[in-house]
Each structure stands twice: as structure tokens, then as C-alpha cells.
């Protein structure tokens, strides 16, 4: 059976908010190392890969591998009943028809219990190759969200270029063009504001802003975001969570003239 207790319901609420535009139905794969999820969007352009390590829960128990096939819209409806600060416990039998969610407030004078029906989802898993990315950029997630939003007003696509000058986000549309350059920045007192650029070779790739805008829905999960790029491979956008848990998005580039 599965029993996984989260100190704050906010984490699961934010995870579901972050992925439900991209994916409507998916399996939450539970095993003794934690709860994972991998799913493509309908058009097979983007992929989300999330893993909440067992250490992110206290306690965590999962005796055997269990796939919880969940409609994220339905899960969100149930999670709306949880306050951000509630303690959230997920429970499921070994071959479950439902997942049980319990929300307790901090003073333990309210306990809400919900059963969410599960569905059979035949989901393909993709092997994500280990990649030595040519460029890695860490920046405030709010900054990335702002850049994505601002450029979306101009164009459908953005070209992210990384060279020894720094990183630039450029786009061109009917009304004109825009370009945002970021340079390395270190603030010892406020590391959340740091911009770090690590590059082994120059990279320039073009991506659809619509998907980047979707990824930015995860901004509330982490103050920093990491962009990893190599020429002619999907972009990885990573929001690191506590206890080595993570939510990663992959986006196939636009290629060719």
C-alpha cells in the first residue's frame, strides 16, 4: 500500500497547477523511492518529468509499485478543498480503484477526507538521455516568467542564444522585435536573485513561447529556474524542489529555415 504524508498541501496543489495545462490525465508512479510522473502534451512537443522523493514526505511508505491514473482536473477539484498549510496524506491500496486524500489543519481540529476515482491510463515512458548540456543558465524563476510573458506579446517564438557575452532572448513578430540580454549576476545576500551562466560552447535555439509560458506556471515552486541547452536537442527547464525533488520540462526546438 501507499501512504505518503506531506507537511504542506501547497506543494501538491502547486505541482498540479504547474502541469495541468500541459497534461490532462497521467499516471502518478509510486515506488519506494517516491512519487514520479512523466507525460507528454497532446501534440508531443513538450514533456513533463516530475519526481517527489520519499524524503519530501514524512512518513512515506510504498510497499510495491503502484500507478495512480489520475485526471488532473478532478484532482485539482479535490485539492481546492485543502488549505495551503494543511497536512496532506495520500493513501492507496496495492491495486487501487481510488486514491484517498486526507487534509488536516495545523491545529488538528478539522480533518477532511476525499476519495478520488482512478482511471486506467496506458502511458508510454520515454527514455531521457543523460546530456552534457552546452549551456546552463540559472536565474530567478520570476524573471524567466516575465521574459516569457513579455516576448509572448510580440511573437510566437523565442530564440535563446548563449555565448560568451551572456544569454539573450530574442523574438520577432508583426509589430516589431524584442531582445532581452542577461549577464551573470551574483548577490551574496539574496542568492535567489542570482543569474549564473555556464557555457562550454555557444548555443542558439528557437522555441515556441506558448509552451514556455505553460512551464512558467511552476514558478511558485522554486525561486530559481535552470535552463539547459545544447544545439539540436530539447530544452530542459528545471524547477528544483526541497529534498532533491524536481519538476522538469522538456521542449523540442523549432529547427530549419
Amino acid at each position: 500500500m501507499l501512504e505518503a504524508r506531506l507537511e504542506q498541501a501547497a506543494l501538491l496543489k502547486k505541482v498540479v497547477d504547474a502541469i495541468k495545462e500541459l497534461v490532462q490525465e497521467c499516471n502518478f508512479d509510486c515506488n519506494d523511492s517516491g512519487i514520479g510522473l512523466q507525460a507528454m502534451d497532446n501534440s508531443h512537443v513538450a514533456l513533463v518529468s516530475m519526481f517527489l522523493k520519499s524524503e519530501s514526505f514524512s512518513p512515506f511508505r510504498c510497499d510495491r509499485n503502484i500507478a495512480l491514473g489520475i485526471n488532473l482536473n478532478a484532482l485539482q477539484k479535490v485539492l481546492r478543498a485543502a488549505q495551503n498549510e494543511d497536512i496532506l496524506t495520500l493513501k492507496a491500496e496495492d491495486a487501487p480503484d481510488v486514491v484517498n486524500l486526507v487534509f488536516e489543519n495545523a491545529t488538528a481540529d478539522r480533518i477532511s477526507e476525499y476519495d478520488l476515482k482512478l482511471m486506467d491510463i496506458d502511458q508510454e515512458h520515454l527514455g531521457i538521455p543523460d546530456t552534457d548540456y552546452a549551456a546552463q543558465i540559472s536565474m530567478p524563476s520570476s524573471e524567466f516568467q516575465r521574459i516569457t510573458r513579455d516576448l509572448s506579446a510580440i511573437s510566437e517564438s523565442v530564440t535563446i542564444e548563449c555565448n560568451k557575452e551572456g544569454v539573450s532572448f530574442a523574438c520577432e513578430g508583426d509589430i516589431g522585435k524584442g531582445n532581452i540580454k542577461l549577464r551573470q549576476y551574483t548577490n551574496v545576500d539574496k542568492p535567489a536573485e542570482n543569474v549564473e551562466v555556464n557555457m562550454t560552447e555557444p548555443v542558439a535555439l528557437t522555441f515556441a513561447l506558448k509552451y514556455l509560458g505553460n512551464f512558467c506556471k511552476a514558478s511558485g515552486l522554486s525561486e530559481q529556474v535552470r535552463l539547459c541547452l545544447s544545439n539540436e536537442v530539447p530544452l530542459m527547464v528545471e524547477y528544483a524542489l526541497a529534498n532533491n525533488s524536481y519538476i522538469r520540462f522538456y521542449l523540442a526546438p523549432k529547427i530549419g529555415d
Partner: peptide, 14 residues
């Protein structure tokens, strides 16, 4: 114009 690639062109099905 550039064309949007599929993620399946990069990551193989397991």
C-alpha cells in the same frame, strides 16, 4: 520558417 519538432524525435520510447 522553422518547423516545430516532436519530442519523440529526440527521446525514444522505452
Amino acid at each position: 520558417d522553422r518547423s516545430q519538432k516532436s519530442i519523440l524525435g529526440f527521446f525514444q520510447k522505452k
